[in-house]
């Protein structure tokens, strides 16, 4: 009790450590989103639903990329909600150079744009390709795998809302087991999407041994921005998979978008990690662990789990979460509160 200053490990920025900004820290340590100068890559007036996680995630990612490239950025977009709600001809919400071609070819178009920039000697212009989970994990997968395999100089960002939302919530290979979609109704002995199907694109991307792969979430802005910045600084093929809740498709309240994304990571179902050249290099530890039920309950697509006989399916989902927790060591003590 003698010398308090010596004993007290003073952390200065407690108040609002995890918020977008923190008026007590240097501007440089605040998020891009806290800045009055952020580029607002997607400006107001877009037609995304109330509380759209994809609109938010795309602005987070592209604003961060814009800052990191000092505005030298071209975005390529696959078909999907993000394209449709931002760009109903002839209006656009994009405040960055932006090109759309088809549903399945964003990675290939981006490879082309990057090649064109290289040929023109404008290699300072960086290329981001973006698409939904359907456009990425299913129809665009061939193009994307090629882009990885050739190590083309493109950052591909997938906004994962776990189904084909733009056409009315059909199942994709990123739809989780038990989720109800228009094509996986909550009926029969295995209601919703079945267990044992689907693919994990971040792990598949890692298998291509590309320089950088990461998962991110709209619930962790600082982590997301850091990963985008890091990815932008690397040359070659890079992949970021961002978790973006969809109030419409998931049957959740519009104000719960960030909360649900947070619960997805805190229960272990959506681990936040990054990998370089095929090796996991880091993960974000869980801060307040919750059982999967807490994540599932606010979403109508999982409502059947809370009726008769849902318990066993919830237990299976919990085992998936537990496996992630183990695999990515998510319950270790945080080294230091990330800012």
């Amino acid at each position: 009790m003698s010398d308090m200053t010596a004993e007290q490990k003073v952390k200065f920025y407690q108040k609002g450590t995890f918020t977008a900004g923190n008026r007590l820290v240097d501007q440089a340590r605040r998020s891009v989103q806290a800045s009055m100068e952020r580029s607002n890559a997607i400006t107001s007036g877009h037609r995304a639903c109330q509380g759209c996680g994809e609109a938010l995630g795309a602005r987070y990612a592209l604003d961060a990329a814009m800052r990191a490239t000092e505005g030298q950025l071209i975005a390529v977009n696959a078909t999907g909600c993000l394209e449709v709600f931002t760009t109903p001809y002839p209006e656009t919400s994009w405040q960055v150079p932006w090109i759309h071609s088809l549903f399945g070819n964003a990675a290939a178009v981006a490879s082309g744009v990057a090649a064109a920039m290289r040929v023109k000697g404008r290699e300072q212009v960086r290329v981001v390709a973006q698409g939904g989970d359907g456009g990425t994990t299913d129809i665009g997968f061939g193009c994307l795998s090629g882009m990885f395999e050739r190590n083309d100089d493109v950052l591909y960002i997938c906004y994962d809302n776990e189904a084909y939302m733009n056409t009315g919530v059909q199942r994709s290979s990123a739809t989780p087991p038990t989720a109800r979609t228009a094509t996986t109704p909550a009926v029969g002995p295995e209601p919703g999407n079945v267990f044992g199907t689907g693919k994990n694109l971040p792990l598949i991307a890692m298998a291509h041994n590309i320089p950088y792969v990461a998962t991110a979430s709209v619930a962790n802005l600082h982590d997301l921005e850091r990963k985008v910045e890091k990815a932008v600084a690397i040359r070659g093929a890079r992949y970021i998979h961002i978790f973006v809740p969809c109030p419409l498709g998931w049957g959740s309240a519009s104000h719960d978008t960030i909360r649900i994304a947070r619960l997805a990571s805190e229960c272990g179902l959506f681990p936040l990690f990054e990998a370089e050249h095929g090796e996991v290099t880091g993960s974000i530890p869980i801060r307040r662990k919750v059982p999967v039920e807490e994540y599932l309950r606010p979403q109508k697509r999982f409502a059947h789990l809370f009726k008769d006989g849902g318990g066993e399916r919830i237990a299976r989902l919990q085992r998936m979460a537990d496996a992630n927790i183990k695999r990515f060591d998510l319950l270790r003590e945080a080294e230091e509160a990330p800012l």
Binding site: K15, G16, T19, A20, G21, N22, R23, R30, S31, Q33, A34, N40, I42, T43, S44, H46, A48, G51, C52, G53, A55, L56, R59, L221, T257, I258
Partner: peptide, 15 residues
């Protein structure tokens, strides 16, 4: 409000 910028950050509509 302590000006943490969260509302400014999280609005999907830049509103």
């Amino acid at each position: 409000c302590f000006e943490c910028d969260n509302c400014y950050g999280v609005c999907p509509d830049n509103a």
